[in-house]
């Protein structure tokens, strides 16, 4: 069963989608929201597997809403006509539906979702005991100006502190998010993400090379070629973790 939340400012649009979803018994609509603020509340409290999200809503847009979520669920966008906004997603090949929604397109989008779920056998059983810690299979929504990405935590190799912001390294991109490194550290799984020094958190699975460095420290080379120094104090911890 896929637990879904519909977020759209128009009651009729929500009803129409619910009606269309009746043909898909595997989808259970557990809640609705009429704007971004309600949406955040519902997503945070119910932790759905999927949200149907309208882009243009009063107050905040769907994109703004996603950027505020700690953990982004699977998202299918619904919009009447908004080529421009959808361009931001070409990189991610995320799905979207144009209203009025064609039943066939909806079926395809849900089909795609099922395939994704099968690839990730962990998914809903890990609705973890400790929900505040992000699993490496969780995805986050990153918005930097006009560009947006859905990123799996396992694809992020490095967080770098830049003032109040953190630079997120994945693939060829390194957008900024408004989060401090300390706040991120608290939410990340320490088995995967390691605080190398004051300014960097690295993904242990995406290290290319480890070299000894002067002063008894270490120098890590990440898969993207970034060279990160591990402070002396953290080196002890690092060696402990790796030797296990």
């Amino acid at each position: 069963m896929i637990r879904a939340v519909i977020i759209d400012d128009e009651r009729l649009a929500r009803n129409e989608l619910k009606k269309l979803l009746l043909d898909f018994p595997e989808i259970e609509v557990i809640a609705e929201a009429a704007n971004a603020a309600e949406g955040i509340e519902k997503v945070d409290s119910l932790n759905p597997d999927l949200i149907f999200l309208d882009i243009q809503m009063p107050g905040k847009t769907g994109f703004d809403m996603l950027a505020e979520l700690e953990r982004a669920p699977n998202v299918i966008f619904t919009t009447a006509y908004d080529e421009y906004a959808l361009k931001a997603f070409e990189v991610n090949a995320l799905d979207y539906l144009l209203k009025p929604v064609e039943p066939k397109r909806l079926a395809d989008a849900l089909q795609k979702l099922q395939v994704e779920e099968d690839k990730d056998p962990i998914s809903d059983h890990t609705i973890s005991v400790n929900r505040s810690i992000l699993n490496e299979h969780d995805q986050v929504f990153v918005k930097d100006g006009e560009r947006c990405w859905f990123v799996k935590l396992s694809d992020i190799r490095l967080f770098e502190s830049v003032g109040n912001y953190a630079k997120v390294y994945f693939g060829p991109n390194k957008p900024l998010i408004l989060k401090s490194l300390n706040a991120l550290e608290e939410r990340l799984d320490e088995k995967v993400f390691f605080r190398a020094n004051r300014k960097h958190i690295v993904n242990l699975r995406l290290i290319e090379k480890i070299e000894p460095y002067f002063n008894g420290g270490l120098l890590l080379e990440m898969k993207g070629g970034e060279k990160i120094e591990v402070s002396r104090r953290q080196t002890v911890k690092f060696k402990e973790m790796m030797s296990l």
Partner: peptide, 15 residues
């Protein structure tokens, strides 16, 4: 506005 047209059609379908 095309946005208006498609939204209107969607509402009508629900109605």
């Amino acid at each position: 506005n095309p946005h208006f047209i498609f939204n209107a059609l969607n509402s009508i379908r629900a109605l």
